[in-house]
Every structure is written in C-alpha cells, then in structure tokens.
Amino acid sequence: MTWTTALGFGERGWGPALLYGAVMTLFVSIAGLAIGAALGSLVAWAKLSGVRVAGAIGEGYAALFRGLPELLVVYFVYFGSSAALTGLYHLLGGEGFLGVPGLAAGALAVGVISGSYQAEVFRGAYLAIAKGELEAARAVGMGPWLMFTRIIGPQVLRFALPGLGNLWQVALKDSSLISVTGLAELMRTSQVAAGSTHQPFTFYVAGGVLYLALTSISDRVFESAEARATRGMRREAH
C-alpha cells in the first residue's frame, strides 16, 4: 500500500480516522482548558482572598502539579478517577467496577495540569486592573456582583488572553499523552494506523502535521481574539 492510499479517504485509507482523531484531540483540549480555567480561577481567587488557609491550599495544588511529569498526572488521574467513581458507586450500594470514560479522565488530567498554570495567569490579570477602576466602580455604588460582571470579568479576560493562548498550546500538546489510556485521539490513532499498516514514519509524520495545523490555526484564532479584545485600548506610542 503506497502512502497516498494509506493516508487517503478510500476504503483502506486512514484519512477519516486521523481527522476524527484530530477532532477528538481538539475536544479533549477544549474541555481540559475549560476545567483548567475553573480550577485556575478558583486558585487565583483563593490566593487573592487573603484567607491564609485557602491561599496555601491553592498554592500547594499549583506547585504540586507544576512539579510532576504530565505523563504521571495522566496515569494517576486515569487510574484514580475510576477507583474514586467505583468507590462512590459502592457507597451508593452498587456492585462491580465503574470505569470513567477515557474522554472524561483525559480532559480532567489536561485540566488539572492546565489549572495549575492558569492560576498565575488569572492572578496576574486581576492585579493588572487599574486600582482606579475598582474604586470608581465602588464610588458609583456597584455591588460586588455587578462589579465582577462589568469591571473585573471583562478586564481579567482581556489581560489573561495572551497567557491563556500559550496554555492552550500546552494543553493541545499535553493531550497527546492521553493516548496511553487508549482514547482514540490523534496520537493514539496515528499509533494504531502505524501498527496496522506497518508504516510508522508515514503516520507519525501525518499526525505531527495535523498537530502543527491545530497549533498554528488556533494561534491565529487567539491572535485575532487578542486584537479584538484590545481594540478599545490605547496603543503605546512606538
């Protein structure tokens, strides 16, 4: 089988499977980034709140997951989440083993890693808000909620965008490690195709090219989002 047939969309071609894998990679990464955003903003809030215990827990989580190999985290989340779910199921009176779907475990793994880095991005973004804006909001009588939705939220998102863009790239690449759990994302699909066609070079290069496409296209998306988010801001004079 020539490499064009192997990669093609014909009966024996792996084209559709690889594209499906790419979509799965995108999906896991987006879910991971979202979980990371939830964890990250929670930790940022804990550290900014001034409550010692909350800040220490947040810092501990972030330091721990930044110091462990991503692959180890993936294994740990994969083995651990199924055990936790089965334990919970037994508590509720169920029997047997309950496995967490690979997609959920994978997104969770990418999420806890990403969250440990996003915490700093969100904290930095909050600290970048001009103090005068917060004082002005209070002076006109805004409540905490209104202040968050109108003043803090939009600006934190704007200041956090460049950092989030970098972490999105990291999440996309980290998602390849989920292949060890057997989830049919891009890396795993490339592996299966490489094995069954005996053309490892073709399929790993094809997978690599698809990753490059994902990272470069999403880089453009983040660039235009940044341009859009900062359109109302004054440019520094050059």
Binding site: S190, A194, P200, V205, G208, L212, S216
Partner: peptide, 23 residues
C-alpha cells in the same frame, strides 16, 4: 522552531524511534 515547538514531543519521539527505523 515552528515544527519542534508546534508538535508534541511524544510524536517527535515516535517519528525518530519507530519512524526512522522502519526504513
């Protein structure tokens, strides 16, 4: 820089270890 930063290390490793040796 684009290639080696844009693709995951895992797939780079597999291209070198499994890919090259297939020729």
């Amino acid at each position: 820089i684009f290639v080696f930063r844009g693709a995951p290390l895992l797939i780079q490793l597999f291209i070198v270890y499994y890919g090259l040796s297939s020729f």
